[in-house]
Write a protein that binds this DNA or RNA. Structure first.
Length: 204
DNA sequence: CCACGGATTGGCT
DNA sequence: GCCAATCCGTGGA
Protein backbone atom coordinates (compact mmCIF):
# COMPACT_ATOMS: atom_id res chain seq x y z
CA UNK A 1 0.00 0.00 0.00
CA UNK A 2 1.15 3.51 -0.67
CA UNK A 3 2.52 4.82 2.62
CA UNK A 4 1.19 8.30 1.85
CA UNK A 5 -2.35 7.01 1.99
CA UNK A 6 -2.09 4.77 5.01
CA UNK A 7 -0.55 6.94 7.72
CA UNK A 8 -1.26 10.08 9.68
CA UNK A 9 0.64 13.31 9.90
CA UNK A 10 2.99 13.55 12.88
CA UNK A 11 1.71 15.87 15.60
CA UNK A 12 3.47 18.36 17.85
CA UNK A 13 4.21 15.87 20.62
CA UNK A 14 6.35 13.77 18.29
CA UNK A 15 8.77 16.66 17.84
CA UNK A 16 8.91 18.09 21.36
CA UNK A 17 10.77 15.09 22.78
CA UNK A 18 14.51 14.72 23.31
CA UNK A 19 16.85 15.14 20.31
CA UNK A 20 18.22 11.61 19.87
CA UNK A 21 14.84 9.99 20.50
CA UNK A 22 13.32 12.00 17.68
CA UNK A 23 16.34 11.39 15.44
CA UNK A 24 15.92 7.62 15.72
CA UNK A 25 12.20 7.76 15.08
CA UNK A 26 12.55 10.09 12.10
CA UNK A 27 14.15 7.25 10.17
CA UNK A 28 11.54 5.57 7.98
CA UNK A 29 9.04 8.46 8.19
CA UNK A 30 7.73 10.04 4.98
CA UNK A 31 8.68 13.65 4.28
CA UNK A 32 6.01 15.38 2.18
CA UNK A 33 6.31 18.66 0.27
CA UNK A 34 2.82 19.68 -0.73
CA UNK A 35 2.83 21.98 -3.74
CA UNK A 36 -0.94 21.83 -4.14
CA UNK A 37 -1.69 19.59 -7.07
CA UNK A 38 1.75 18.04 -6.96
CA UNK A 39 2.99 16.24 -3.86
CA UNK A 40 6.63 15.34 -3.57
CA UNK A 41 7.63 12.82 -0.94
CA UNK A 42 10.31 10.45 0.24
CA UNK A 43 11.22 8.12 3.07
CA UNK A 44 13.84 9.49 5.46
CA UNK A 45 16.86 7.20 5.43
CA UNK A 46 19.63 9.34 6.94
CA UNK A 47 19.70 12.11 9.58
CA UNK A 48 22.16 14.00 11.77
CA UNK A 49 21.38 15.42 15.22
CA UNK A 50 22.67 18.84 16.27
CA UNK A 51 22.45 21.01 19.35
CA UNK A 52 22.70 21.02 23.10
CA UNK A 53 25.20 22.73 25.39
CA UNK A 54 28.28 20.71 24.36
CA UNK A 55 27.83 20.31 20.59
CA UNK A 56 30.25 22.83 19.12
CA UNK A 57 29.21 21.93 15.56
CA UNK A 58 25.61 23.03 16.10
CA UNK A 59 24.49 26.36 14.70
CA UNK A 60 23.05 27.14 18.13
CA UNK A 61 26.37 26.74 19.95
CA UNK A 62 27.12 30.47 20.08
CA UNK A 63 23.66 31.45 21.31
CA UNK A 64 20.58 32.81 19.63
CA UNK A 65 20.90 34.87 16.42
CA UNK A 66 18.44 35.83 13.73
CA UNK A 67 19.57 32.91 11.59
CA UNK A 68 19.11 30.18 14.21
CA UNK A 69 16.23 31.54 16.28
CA UNK A 70 13.75 28.96 15.00
CA UNK A 71 16.02 26.24 16.41
CA UNK A 72 15.52 27.75 19.87
CA UNK A 73 11.76 27.51 19.56
CA UNK A 74 9.50 24.54 20.30
CA UNK A 75 9.90 21.39 18.19
CA UNK A 76 8.04 20.73 14.95
CA UNK A 77 9.22 23.63 12.81
CA UNK A 78 11.55 23.66 9.81
CA UNK A 79 15.01 25.20 10.09
CA UNK A 80 16.43 25.94 6.62
CA UNK A 81 19.91 27.36 6.14
CA UNK A 82 22.03 28.31 3.15
CA UNK A 83 25.63 27.18 2.90
CA UNK A 84 28.70 27.26 0.62
CA UNK A 85 26.96 29.93 -1.43
CA UNK A 86 25.12 27.22 -3.28
CA UNK A 87 22.99 24.90 -1.20
CA UNK A 88 20.05 24.86 1.19
CA UNK A 89 19.73 22.26 3.93
CA UNK A 90 16.61 21.48 5.94
CA UNK A 91 16.28 20.49 9.56
CA UNK A 92 13.50 19.41 11.89
CA UNK A 93 13.51 21.40 15.15
CA UNK A 94 13.07 19.22 18.25
CA UNK A 95 12.52 19.64 21.96
CA UNK A 96 11.11 22.39 24.11
CA UNK A 97 11.32 26.16 23.87
CA UNK A 98 14.94 27.15 24.45
CA UNK A 99 16.56 23.74 23.77
CA UNK A 100 18.20 24.77 20.50
CA UNK A 101 18.16 21.29 18.98
CA UNK A 102 17.40 20.14 15.44
CA UNK A 103 17.91 17.25 13.07
CA UNK A 104 19.42 17.63 9.61
CA UNK A 105 17.70 15.48 7.00
CA UNK A 106 20.58 14.11 4.95
CA UNK A 107 18.94 11.61 2.62
CA UNK A 108 15.50 10.41 1.56
CA UNK A 109 14.29 7.64 -0.72
CA UNK A 110 11.86 9.10 -3.29
CA UNK A 111 8.27 7.88 -2.97
CA UNK A 112 5.99 10.24 -4.92
CA UNK A 113 6.64 12.87 -7.57
CA UNK A 114 9.90 11.36 -8.78
CA UNK A 115 9.50 12.84 -12.25
CA UNK A 116 9.15 16.34 -10.83
CA UNK A 117 12.07 15.85 -8.45
CA UNK A 118 14.20 14.77 -11.38
CA UNK A 119 13.35 17.94 -13.27
CA UNK A 120 14.09 20.06 -10.20
CA UNK A 121 17.49 18.39 -9.89
CA UNK A 122 18.63 17.88 -13.47
CA UNK A 123 16.25 19.94 -15.63
CA UNK A 124 15.31 16.85 -17.62
CA UNK A 125 14.12 13.25 -17.32
CA UNK A 126 16.30 10.47 -15.98
CA UNK A 127 18.74 9.21 -18.58
CA UNK A 128 20.29 6.31 -16.74
CA UNK A 129 18.83 4.19 -13.95
CA UNK A 130 21.76 5.00 -11.70
CA UNK A 131 20.71 8.68 -11.52
CA UNK A 132 17.73 7.64 -9.40
CA UNK A 133 20.15 7.17 -6.51
CA UNK A 134 21.64 10.63 -7.04
CA UNK A 135 18.33 12.43 -6.64
CA UNK A 136 18.02 12.88 -2.89
CA UNK A 137 21.11 11.26 -1.30
CA UNK A 138 22.45 14.42 0.35
CA UNK A 139 21.04 17.41 2.26
CA UNK A 140 21.53 19.92 -0.57
CA UNK A 141 20.11 17.49 -3.10
CA UNK A 142 16.93 17.02 -1.05
CA UNK A 143 16.26 20.74 -0.97
CA UNK A 144 16.90 21.07 -4.69
CA UNK A 145 14.66 18.15 -5.67
CA UNK A 146 11.85 19.27 -3.35
CA UNK A 147 12.33 23.00 -4.08
CA UNK A 148 12.92 23.88 -0.45
CA UNK A 149 14.56 27.30 -0.01
CA UNK A 150 14.97 30.10 2.50
CA UNK A 151 11.32 31.00 2.08
CA UNK A 152 10.42 27.75 3.83
CA UNK A 153 12.36 28.80 6.92
CA UNK A 154 10.19 28.41 10.00
CA UNK A 155 7.34 26.45 8.42
CA UNK A 156 5.18 24.61 10.96
CA UNK A 157 5.47 20.89 10.27
CA UNK A 158 2.02 20.27 11.76
CA UNK A 159 0.60 22.38 8.90
CA UNK A 160 -0.11 21.20 5.36
CA UNK A 161 2.76 22.68 3.33
CA UNK A 162 5.61 20.48 4.53
CA UNK A 163 4.99 17.65 7.00
CA UNK A 164 5.88 14.10 7.98
CA UNK A 165 3.73 10.99 7.81
CA UNK A 166 3.92 8.41 10.57
CA UNK A 167 5.38 4.98 9.91
CA UNK A 168 6.41 2.01 12.02
CA UNK A 169 9.24 2.75 14.44
CA UNK A 170 12.36 0.83 13.43
CA UNK A 171 14.47 -1.40 15.66
CA UNK A 172 17.99 -0.39 16.65
CA UNK A 173 19.43 -3.29 14.67
CA UNK A 174 18.21 -1.65 11.45
CA UNK A 175 19.99 1.62 12.29
CA UNK A 176 23.68 2.48 11.93
CA UNK A 177 25.07 5.10 14.36
CA UNK A 178 28.11 6.87 12.93
CA UNK A 179 30.14 10.09 12.97
CA UNK A 180 28.70 13.20 11.37
CA UNK A 181 29.92 14.39 7.99
CA UNK A 182 31.54 17.63 6.88
CA UNK A 183 32.13 19.22 10.30
CA UNK A 184 35.34 20.19 12.11
CA UNK A 185 34.07 20.39 15.70
CA UNK A 186 32.58 17.76 18.01
CA UNK A 187 33.50 15.19 15.39
CA UNK A 188 33.35 12.15 17.64
CA UNK A 189 29.64 12.16 18.47
CA UNK A 190 27.83 9.24 16.83
CA UNK A 191 24.91 11.45 15.86
CA UNK A 192 24.58 10.46 12.21
CA UNK A 193 21.91 7.80 11.93
CA UNK A 194 21.02 5.91 8.78
CA UNK A 195 19.15 2.84 7.64
CA UNK A 196 21.39 -0.17 7.27
CA UNK A 197 21.82 -1.33 3.65
CA UNK A 198 19.64 1.42 2.19
CA UNK A 199 20.97 2.45 -1.26
CA UNK A 200 19.79 6.06 -0.89
CA UNK A 201 22.10 6.87 2.06
CA UNK A 202 24.65 9.59 1.15
CA UNK A 203 27.72 7.60 2.20
CA UNK A 204 28.63 4.47 4.10
C1' DC B 1 33.28 47.89 7.71
C1' DC B 2 35.76 43.89 6.30
C1' DA B 3 37.41 39.11 6.35
C1' DC B 4 36.57 34.44 6.97
C1' DG B 5 34.67 30.05 6.13
C1' DG B 6 30.90 26.74 6.01
C1' DA B 7 26.00 20.58 8.64
C1' DT B 8 27.79 20.60 0.00
C1' DT B 9 28.15 19.29 -4.58
C1' DG B 10 30.09 18.24 -9.00
C1' DG B 11 33.83 18.20 -12.09
C1' DC B 12 38.51 17.20 -13.04
C1' DT B 13 43.27 14.99 -12.02
C1' DG C 1 41.43 12.69 -4.03
C1' DC C 2 41.43 17.70 -4.73
C1' DC C 3 39.29 21.98 -5.38
C1' DA C 4 36.29 25.77 -7.16
C1' DA C 5 31.68 27.75 -7.00
C1' DT C 6 29.30 31.54 -4.67
C1' DC C 7 26.46 33.72 -0.84
C1' DC C 8 25.76 35.42 3.53
C1' DG C 9 25.97 34.79 8.64
C1' DT C 10 29.02 35.79 12.07
C1' DG C 11 32.64 37.97 14.64
C1' DG C 12 36.34 41.12 15.30
C1' DA C 13 38.28 46.02 14.45
Amino acid sequence: MNPEQSHKKLERQFYTRELLTVAKELLGKILVKNDGKIKLSGKIVEVEAYGGSFDEAAHTYGGKTKRNEIMFGIGGFLYVYFTYGTHFCCNVVTGKEGDGTAILIRAIQPVNGIKRMTYNRFGRDLIIEKEKYNLTNGPGKICQSLSITKKHYGIDLTGDKIFLLDQTILNDDQIVFSKRIGIKKSIDLLWRLYLKDNPFVSRK
